[in-house]
Design a protein around this nucleic acid. Sequence first.
DNA 1: CGTCGTTTTGACACGCTTCAAGAGTTGTGG
DNA 2: CCACAACTCTTGAAGCGTGTCAAAACGACG
Lengths: 254, 254
Amino acid sequence: MLQSNKSALQPLIDRLTLHSMLSEAEQGALCRLTASPRKVAVNHDIARVGERTEYACMVVSGLVGRVEQTSSGERQISALYIPGDMPDSLSVVQPTATSALQALSPVEIVRVPHKELRALVGTYHGITEAFWRQAAADALVFSQWVANVGRRPAKTRIAHLICEMAWRYQVAPTSGGLAFNLPMTQTHLADATGLTPVHVNRSLKALRDDGVEFRRGAVLIDDWTALVATADFDPVYLQVDYNARQRVRIADAA
Amino acid sequence: MLQSNKSALQPLIDRLTLHSMLSEAEQGALCRLTASPRKVAVNHDIARVGERTEYACMVVSGLVGRVEQTSSGERQISALYIPGDMPDSLSVVQPTATSALQALSPVEIVRVPHKELRALVGTYHGITEAFWRQAAADALVFSQWVANVGRRPAKTRIAHLICEMAWRYQVAPTSGGLAFNLPMTQTHLADATGLTPVHVNRSLKALRDDGVEFRRGAVLIDDWTALVATADFDPVYLQVDYNARQRVRIADAA
DNA sequence: CGTCGTTTTGACACGCTTCAAGAGTTGTGG
DNA sequence: CCACAACTCTTGAAGCGTGTCAAAACGACG
């Protein structure tokens, strides 16, 4: 494959350096990882439950969902992964997946061999630390999802998810309106919120009266502040410190 | 405080070594950490949202819940922590809590200064790796909770939680019956499952007909296999490999 | 231009919540 | 050691949010 001088993994580095300080050497090493591109069609699996894998993947474009499935066949999306995310970084250490990863839109990923990642994690303490922080940050998002699905009414639930995604895509304004792509269907939204597609549709209709429109993978918001209020959304759990005011690296401190 | 030759943090080491290999030096260093004991009364907070802390804690006895709260005052327990767990290991790196930690029963914890933990994580690569794995494993449990709360009917939801706790307490048999303590009230159960206390009560009544009893913090199960079936429970997500067949340490591999 | 997946809408059913009140249990202070 | 208070747990009746079933309209794509 053609390797441009800018690594395909740059989005991952950008993600990690949001919360962790990586040395030049570490960033360089990450850049030099093998990153084989791969396209995945909508609704196709990137990882299946129980399947062993030799690669971890990073999302380059599109939207990936972590899909849990009950024995009665009901689906629950428990996490959404956007470009720069590494949904299965755990697989480096636990190669057998316990939930499926599925493309919710046409998706481009790059695959990184576990072998190389292990070598990196073994060599660069700062990279291990960065993955640790990322895993911990992910856990806090999961925790919010439990609360969202468990305790909020349908409309609020959907609004909250929209707010989270706006924030993670870094398109959330301080006020006013905005528009962004959220490439999923209403059925996907239902799976992510623990509702039925029919009820999602009705709730979206209700949201439309509040100036929030979701149509064919695009979100249109008239008044961000109002949406945040109806969504009961507080972004602190996302831990995204865009100013990186106080990143502290432990690895060299001792 | 009196420091016996067996560290108070041994349960944490036992937990970490379930999935990660720690060298003698690393285990010794963990043992020598300052661990100030502290008792917390029922329903009292161990950590509050937005509060900064200088200590991470390990549960010694009792049950701790991670509590999310919506603006309308509804509570959702998104995780349960049992002896040996370190609910706020993330705080080492992110000292401001985004969800509350609350004692669901009388609880004993030990508090470990962040400063010391940071020194350890900075020195011992294997410890960082172990924390990383633990965080990733926790995330998979969260993922299952999203599915549990989002897609299962009340009775199944409660049964699933009981199964998980039996498994984590390592009291789950291969068949037959069992009894164990799960020191929480029906209201706590409701908060953990996203139901109302009233409906939890009714569901417990229904479970009683299936030979599963929950009374004042004690669980009595006639037939484990039957419960697993009604709970739709598959323990793989808990990643507990009691045989530790294939723990691989990355830290020294490079 | 036809096909298939997605969105929309309606009517109805049901699981869970709400409100309310009483019984059981635990803890506490006199 | 009893009496009272404060939680828990339990049960009933009624209401509502969400699910289910069904069918039609719409949109994307080959």
